[in-house]
Computed example of a mutant assay.
Amino acid sequence: MNKSPYISFVFTGRNDNYGGDFKQRLQNCVSRLFSQLVEFDISAEIIFVNYNPVSESPRIQEFIRWPKSTENVIIRIITVLPAHHKKFIEQNGIKNIPVIEYLGKNVGIRRSKGEFICAMNPDILFPDKFIQKISGNLYQDRYYRANRIDFEYDNGRKKLICINLKGHTHKLKYYSGLLYLWLKIRYGVVNWYMINTIKIESLLNRLSIPVYYDNVEFRFHCKSSGDFMMMHTRFWKEIGAYYESAPIALHIDSLFVVQAAMSGLKEYVLDIPVYHQEHERRYLADNRNEEENTAYRFFQRESQKMLKEKKSMNYNNHADWGLNTIDLPEIYC
C-alpha cells in the first residue's frame, strides 16, 4: 500500500475457544470484512492483536484461514506475548483474565496507520450497505456509533435475538426498516424523559416516581460500544484511547464514548445496524455481582464528573499506553 489507509479496523483475541466457537466467529468476521473492503475498493488495514496466545493451540496464522493482503487492503497481526501480559497484570494490579481487551485494542490503535480508526470486536459482521456508508465522506469532528443486532445460528439459519440501541435492549422476532424507525422514535422519547427527570425531581419524589440520576447512557450511545466505535486517528490518540488499567474490563468502552463526547466531538449513529454473532459471555448484564456493580458505579461516577466539568478525561496519561515502548512481534498476511 503506497498511501496511508483510509480506515484501520482494530480488534483483538487469541487462539482459543472463548465463548464456545471463537474460531468460527473470528473466521466469519475476517473473511467477510476483507471481501467487502476488496469489493468496494476501500483503502484499509485490518489489525488483529493476537493477545496472550495459547502455546498448546495452533499459532494464530494457522488458527484460521487468513486472506492474502492486496495492494489496497492490508492484514497485520500484532502479538502481545504472555510475558507482556503477565508483566502488565503485575504492574497494574488488575484482574488476571486471558485477554485484557482494551489493552489489546490500544496496542492496535497506537500502531494503526489509517486516517480513521474503527475499534470493533472479532465477531461483528457488517452489512454491505454499512461498509459502503463508511467508505468515504467521514467527518473529523464526529465519532461514529452503530446499533447492534444479536443473532445466533439455528439449524444453519440466522435467528434474531435482540437489538441494542441507545440506552436500551429490545427483543426481536424480525427486523425491518419500519420497525427500526418505530424503535428509534419510541426509545428517543424514553431517553429524553430519563435524561430530564432530574429537572423535576422534587415533583417526582413527592409522587414516588423514579428519578434517573445515573442517566449518561441515555444521553450518549454507550450500549455495545466495544463492537463499533470509529473516529479520526487524531482524537483516538489525543484522548488516550481506552482506559487500559481498569480493575476489570467492564464499561470501559462506554466510558470512552463519554470521553469522546466531552472532548467536543459530535455523536453520529449510523442508521444501519451491525450484526453480532451471539456466544457465551464472561459477564452477564442481567446477573451482576458486586465486582461488576463497582465497575458500573465507576463508569457513572466518572461520566457524571465529565458532564459537570464539561471536559474529557484521559485515563492513560502516560507515554506507554498501548505498550508503545515495547517492540511487539508483527506479521503481514
Rank of each mutant, 00 (worst) to 15 (best):
T70P: 00
K105W: 03
I185W: 12
I149M: 03
Y180S: 12
D141I: 10
G93M: 10
E152S: 09
K86N: 09
A119N: 03
I100V: 15
L183D: 06
K166P: 02
V107F: 05
Y144P: 05
K113H: 10
R142E: 12
K87P: 03
P127T: 11
R186I: 10
G104K: 01
I89T: 02
G93H: 06
S202L: 11
H84A: 01
F116P: 07
N137S: 05
I149D: 04
I185A: 13
G188N: 06
Y144T: 04
R186G: 12
D123L: 08
G114Q: 14
P67D: 01
D141R: 06
S112H: 14
S176Y: 08
P82Q: 02
T169R: 14
K129W: 09
Y153R: 06
S135W: 07
Y102A: 05
L165N: 03
V190W: 13
R110E: 13
W66G: 04
K173Q: 09
I78E: 04
S135P: 06
I124K: 01
N121F: 06
I78K: 03
F88V: 02
S135G: 13
D150R: 11
I97K: 11
I109A: 07
P98D: 05
K159D: 04
S135K: 07
R186Q: 14
I97P: 04
R148L: 15
Q140Y: 14
N155P: 01
E101W: 09
F126H: 12
I97R: 08
R59N: 13
I124S: 02
I149R: 03
P122G: 13
S176E: 14
T169I: 14
P127V: 09
N196S: 09
D128H: 05
I60P: 05
F116R: 06
A119V: 07
T197N: 07
L165E: 01
I195N: 06
T70A: 09
F130H: 11
G156D: 04
N155R: 09
E62V: 00
K158F: 07
F88S: 03
F63S: 00
P127M: 09
A83T: 05
G167V: 03
N191K: 10
I149Q: 02
D154Q: 15
I78N: 01
